[in-house]
C-alpha cells in the first residue's frame, strides 16, 4: 500500500506524514518504508532519523559509474540496489529514505526513471509506504509519484491551501488515476472552521487536526514524533487513517 501525503508548503504535511508512518508501522508490526520526497527534507528530523546519504547521493554515484563506462546495465542495476540499501535508515520495522536535493546540472532523465523504478520495486517489498511529497503539484505533474494507492491531502484552514489540494487532486486524477484520496485539515481552531471548509469543497474531508501544544513543543525542541505521546493531533491523524480504511 502506497500512501502519498501532499499539500501546499507549510500546512503540516511532514507532521502528518510522520504520525501516519508511525501509525502504519505499529499496525500489527507492518514493515513501513517512509520516503521524504520533499527536497526541503524535514521528515528525517520529524522522525529523529538522520540519513547517512540521500537518494540524490545515490543518483550522483550511479551517474559517475555510467560516465566511467565500465559497467553494463546489469551491474548498474545491482549497484543501485546496494546503494539504496545503504541509504536506508532503519528503526525497528520502519525504513527511511530521503530524496535529498538535486544540485548538479544536466538532464539525467534515464537515471531518474531507473531510480523511480527501483523505489517502486523497493516499496513493493514493504507492507506500507508513506511518501512525504514535495509541496505543491510539481511531483504529481512530473509523475514522480505514481502507483499511489491513497493520496492524503493536507491543508490548513486557509482557502489558498484548500485550493492547492483541490488542484493536486484534479491533476492526480488525470495523471495518476490513484485509487482514493481524502483531505485532512490541520490546525483547526473550532468546529465552525471545519464546517466552512466542508461546505466549500468537493473533497472528502476525512479528518481535522486541532491546534496542539504537544506538536508545537516537539517541533520547537526538534524531538522525534516517534516519541510523541497520546495527544489530540496524533489521535486525529490516526482517526483520519481509520476513516480512510488505512488503519
Amino acid at each position: 500500500m502506497i500512501l502519498a501525503v501532499c499539500g501546499k508548503g507549510g500546512v503540516g504535511k511532514t507532521t502528518v506524514s510522520a504520525i501516519a508512518a508511525q501509525a502504519l508501522a505499529e499496525k500489527n508490526g507492518l514493515r513501513a518504508l517512509v520516503v521524504d520526497a520533499d527536497p526541503a527534507g524535514g521528515l528525517g528530523m520529524a522522525l529523529g532519523l538522520t540519513p547517512r546519504r540521500t537518494l540524490n547521493d545515490v543518483r550522483k554515484e550511479i551517474i559517475e559509474e555510467v560516465k566511467e563506462g565500465k559497467r553494463d546495465k546489469r551491474d548498474l542495476s545491482v549497484s543501485l540496489d546496494y546503494l539504496i540499501a545503504e541509504a536506508l535508515t532503519e528503526r525497528g520495522n520502519m525504513a527511511f529514505l530521503s530524496i535529498g536535493r538535486p544540485e548538479d546540472e544536466g538532464c539525467y532523465c534515464k537515471v531518474n526513471v531507473i531510480l523511480k523504478d527501483t523505489i517502486e520495486g523497493l516499496a513493493g517489498r514493504f507492507d506500507a509506504t508513506v511518501i512525504d511529497a514535495e509541496a505543491g503539484i510539481e511531483q504529481v505533474n512530473r509523475k514522480v509519484i505514481s502507483s499511489v494507492d491513497y493520496m492524503l491531502l493536507v491543508s490548513d484552514t486557509s482557502a489558498k491551501a484548500v485550493r492547492v489540494v483541490e488542484t493536486i487532486k484534479d491533476v492526480a486524477d488525470r495523471m495518476i488515476g490513484n485509487e482514493g484520496a481524502g483531505l485532512v485539515v490541520n490546525r483547526v481552531r473550532d468546529r465552525a472552521e471545519i464546517e466552512g471548509i466542508q461546505s466549500g469543497t468537493a473533497l472528502d474531508v476525512i479528518g481535522w487536526v486541532p491546534e496542539d501544544d504537544t506538536i508545537r513543543r516537539f517541533d520547537g525542541e526538534e524531538k522525534s514524533f516517534l516519541e510523541l505521546p497520546d495527544c489530540p493531533a496524533r489521535a486525529a491523524i490516526r482517526g483520519a487513517l481509520v476513516r480512510a480504511g488505512l488503519l
Binding site: E65, K70, R71, D75, V78, S79, D81, Y82, A85
Partner: peptide, 9 residues
C-alpha cells in the same frame, strides 16, 4: 544479498 560491482563488495 547486495552487490556493489565497482567496489567488489
Amino acid at each position: 544479498i547486495r552487490t556493489m560491482p565497482s567496489k567488489r563488495t
